[in-house]
């Protein structure tokens, strides 16, 4: 609003931030290559994700930044740390044919640099990418779908099938992780261990206070995706993170009591089915698969209904998938350490 004139005047600052962020990214990536401590490496990877999220904001990709921060800096980092407790903290000093690796990398890099020679200039508004499909989405999405966030329009409607595929990818990962790490423990073994953080009173109390607002925020993100950055995916990750926080403080077995695993599994599948059945309904109503126009009398209503339902499907699958993946990893810790100790 009032920001606009300032934005133009601050072009120089924007460029400066751009240069600095990219430099930080480069430093992080390079130091990652030289760090032998894997915990430090995880942190660097997380920092890398956060920095790139900041860069995405600078590049106007707010939805992407949101997701990258939640996933790259959040979920991936947690999973990696959990894995490290099982696999050990330090890596071997020895590199694997470093010279061959370096030459492969250099050849690849040179190929890419050659590729940049004929690229349209960075940020140009006459580049082919900006003049073919992008104007359609920007001009028409208001009329076709009538929600402000164009990214949500494209994600949920124009390219809704890609997003369906994305949900299926998450589902596939859940199946993979469960197939690899799930195990059934005999009842007598699941003897209650003290919660890991029982000593940290402050941490426990603060987190307990935090968990409900996090869940609430997840719901806000879920249903606000049409107007601002957010949507089912981000909401799912945020919701899952509240459960993960609970699990970290009060123990895995405690969480498994609070959150019924069979129900979570059914929900993970249900999210995919909800998404898929929106398509089936539009087919039965005479439209093509995932054609939301066929869902209601007026096209706009149909689009809105369709988008809300599929976002719900995305949210449910992503939230339950992340919970399932984390809990399966965390529960494995005991077993792995027993086995290899």
């Amino acid at each position: 609003m009032r920001l606009k004139p300032i934005r133009i005047r601050s072009r120089a600052i924007e460029i400066l931030i751009n240069v600095i962020l990219l430099a930080f990214l480069a430093i992080t990536a390079l130091s990652l290559a030289f760090t032998k401590d894997l915990f430090a490496s995880v942190m660097l990877t997380g920092i890398y994700s956060l920095l790139s999220a900041a860069f995405f904001v600078l590049m106007d990709a707010v939805d992407v930044a949101f997701t990258e921060a939640a996933v790259g800096a959040g979920i991936s980092t947690i999973l990696m740390v959990t894995t490290l407790t099982m696999t050990g903290r330090f890596e071997n000093r020895k590199l694997h044919h470093p010279k061959i690796a370096l030459s492969v990398v250099i050849v690849t890099g040179v190929m890419l640099v050659i590729g940049t020679m004929d690229m349209p200039a960075f940020g140009s508004d006459t580049a082919p990418a900006q003049v073919h499909l992008a104007p359609y989405f920007i001009m028409q999405s208001g009329e076709d779908i009538d929600i402000p966030n164009i990214v949500t329009s494209v994600l949920a409607s124009y390219r809704g099938f890609d997003t369906f595929g994305e949900v299926v990818v998450v589902f596939t990962a859940v199946i993979g992780v469960l197939a690899l790490l799930e195990f059934s423990r005999k009842d007598n073994e699941s003897a209650e261990k003290p919660a890991p953080m029982s000593q940290h009173k402050i941490l426990r109390i603060v987190s307990k206070i935090l968990i409900p607002p996090i869940m609430l925020f997840a719901l806000y993100v879920q249903f606000h995706g049409e107007y601002g950055p957010g949507g089912g995916f981000q909401a799912g990750v945020i919701f899952a993170s509240s459960i993960i926080l609970y699990a970290m403080l009060f123990g895995i077995e405690q969480t498994r009591k609070a959150v019924s695993m069979p129900v979570v599994k059914v929900l993970a599948a249900l999210g995919v089915l909800i998404y898929g059945s929106v398509g089936i309904v539009s087919m039965l109503n005479g439209g093509n698969y995932l054609d939301y126009n066929a869902l209601a009398e007026s096209n706009i209503t149909g689009q809105h209904v369709g988008i809300i339902i599929i976002e719900l499907g995305v949210g449910i699958t992503v939230a339950t998938a992340m919970i399932l993946i984390f809990l399966t990893f965390a529960r494995r810790i005991g077993k792995t350490n027993e086995g290899t100790a």
Binding site: T67, V71, A129, V151, D162, A173, G176
Partner: peptide, 30 residues
Amino acid sequence: YSNPLPHVLILTAIVVGVATTALGLALAVR
């Protein structure tokens, strides 16, 4: 406005990325 299409593609790709990481880590544990 900046071009929304690559944003959508990358949202998908981020998810694919974390799915791959999760599976890779599970394999590493095993």
